[in-house]
Amino acid sequence: MTTPPLKDWPLWEVFVRSKQGLEHKHCGSLHAADARQALHLARDVYTRRQEGVSIWVVPSAAITASNPDDKAELFDPAADKIYRHPSFYDIPDDVGHM
């Protein structure tokens, strides 16, 4: 044995498509030794009541997340660009639905 024993199986994030036509949605995480086992466990843990028709599992370590400290820098600039929303424009009533 050259590899040090892991205390826990690695962590995976689980995404479930609830029905055909909808997107996969994050629903939780679990520990598993490999991808195949992660899929198997996700099926047992997250779809016992027909919650899904398809599952994705992603190693949690593979996810890159935005830094909460950058929140202002990243998202605040959108706050003053209200012209990006349709409600910014006054269209005469006579035009009807647009």
Binding site: T3, P5, L6, W9, A32, A33, D34, Q37
Partner: peptide
């Protein structure tokens, strides 16, 4: 079982 699963994955 846990150890075997890890060994298999490796």
């Amino acid at each position: 079982v846990r150890e075997a699963a890890l060994a298999h994955a490796r």
